[in-house]
């Protein structure tokens, strides 16, 4: 059985310092709020092609958790040598044989985030991406940035983040909320609408 007491504590701990780390873990909504199926979110590391993106990671806890590693894969499409561009599968040792029960979901997500800033093309999950990374880094970086823009930006920003961002720009919160709602949550369109009056 999954140690639910520990999972709950982990969620609590992780979401407590969300401001600092930017990493959050939520229950997966479509799964009867089961504690075995979670979604983690990590911001793309600064000074990488993933900067500015928010990446969702699908987390499934096996029965033996925390003595067996959690199963993680990217729900957001990402262009990275160690992450499958098709399935989102992650090639990371601590998610396999180097897992230790002393690690937590948050530390695992931090490791995934670290992987984003330090790819290991010599041990690739996605051979095509790894080839490109090694042979033509410019194109790789451009593609990765494009994928980040396309898949990791609008859809993954939580509504609260968007509200916060627009409020910081100086718009009143109530107006921001209603505008965002009217454009279906699209941040850019909302901004346009707010500016035009």
């Amino acid at each position: 059985m999954v140690d639910f007491a520990r999972v709950q504590k982990e969620l609590h701990e992780c979401n407590k310092d969300i401001e600092v780390s930017g990493i959050s873990i939520k229950l997966k909504e479509d799964n009867n709020n089961s504690l075995t199926h979670l979604t983690g979110t990590i911001p793309g590391p600064l000074a990488t092609p993933y900067e500015g993106g928010n990446f969702n990671i699908d987390i499934v806890l096996p029965d033996g958790y925390p003595f067996e590693p959690p199963r993680m894969q990217f729900a957001t499409k990402v262009w990275h040598p160690n992450i499958s561009s098709q399935s989102g599968a992650i090639c990371l040792d601590i998610l396999k044989d180097q897992w230790s029960p002393a690690l937590t979901l948050k530390t695992a997500l931090l490791s995934v985030q670290a992987l984003l800033s330090a790819p290991e093309p010599d041990d690739p999950q996605d051979a095509v991406v790894a080839q490109q990374y090694l042979r033509d880094y410019q194109t790789f970086a451009a593609t990765a940035r494009y994928w980040t823009e396309t898949f990791a930006r609008s859809s993954t920003l939580g509504i609260e983040d968007k509200v916060k961002k627009l409020v910081e720009m100086g718009f009143p919160e109530a107006q921001v909320r209603s505008t965002l709602e009217s454009v279906g949550g699209d941040e850019n369109m909302a901004l346009e609408k707010l500016c035009s009056g």
């Binding site: 003595f67 067996e68 601590i94 180097q98 230790s100 029960p101 002393a102 690690l103």
Partner: peptide, 25 residues
């Protein structure tokens, strides 16, 4: 926790090299 760890490892067929639970130990 130790017990649980050992059981998982034995069942995985890792009896001969069961490592400490601490990360990187």
């Amino acid at each position: 926790c130790w017990t649980e760890h050992f059981i998982v490892k034995i069942n995985e067929g890792q009896s001969k090299r069961i490592r400490c639970m601490a990360h990187k130990c």
